[in-house]
Simulated assay, not measured.
Amino acid sequence: MTNQNRSSYRKGVDLTLKQRAFVTILVRQGCNPTQAARQAGYVEPKVASYDLLRTPHVQEAVRQERARYVSGDLANVATGTLRAIMIDENAPASARVAAARTALELAGELGSSKRDVDNDRPLNEMTADQLAQLIDKWQGERSELANTVDADDVTMPCAADSSQLLQ
């Protein structure tokens, strides 16, 4: 195959036009690999799909396309759906609250993904006072995790018993 038949799909991933069509159809239409190969124009779609999905640069292109699709088109649909539910006065209150909660979690304003402004900022952008506060916070967390070991709670095997431990 000549280089003229290949095109750069994404950085570091060169695909033929058929491979590019296969990847796009597979990800965007949600069909199975054989159907995607058939629609992309492969003569033996079952064999082609099997081979394509085992080719590293095609696998990488599928990963990249999925990430792009999810973070782009699907994210837009998802946020649109959340908005529609939140403003629909006929929707059950529980659905509206759940949609609002999900939107706030995605925005990093609620739940485990809530952003801590100081922790999100790169260290090189913090002032000396902010760095000192962060160090104090980390030291406090480390202290909370430390356990005091009481010598009475520790038992040491005697030399005669240690041979039994190795068996």
Rank of each mutant, 00 (worst) to 15 (best):
N3R: 09
Q4F: 09
R6Q: 02
S7D: 04
S7W: 01
D14C: 06
T16C: 07
L26M: 04
R28Y: 05
C31W: 07
N32V: 07
T34G: 11
Q35D: 12
Q35W: 06
Q39T: 13
Q39V: 04
V43H: 06
V43R: 13
P45R: 04
D51Y: 11
L52C: 02
R54T: 15
R54W: 10
T55S: 11
Q59R: 13
R66G: 10
S71Y: 12
D73V: 14
D73E: 12
R83A: 13
A84R: 15
I85Q: 01
S94Y: 06
A98R: 00
E105T: 13
E105K: 09
L110A: 00
L110M: 03
S113D: 06
D116M: 03
D116A: 07
V117I: 15
L123C: 13
L123R: 05
L123G: 09
M126V: 13
T127Q: 09
T127C: 02
A132D: 12
I135R: 12
D136E: 13
D136T: 14
W138C: 06
Q139A: 14
E141P: 00
S143N: 03
T148S: 03
A151F: 11
D152S: 09
M156Y: 15
C158T: 14
Q164K: 15
L165C: 15
Q167A: 15
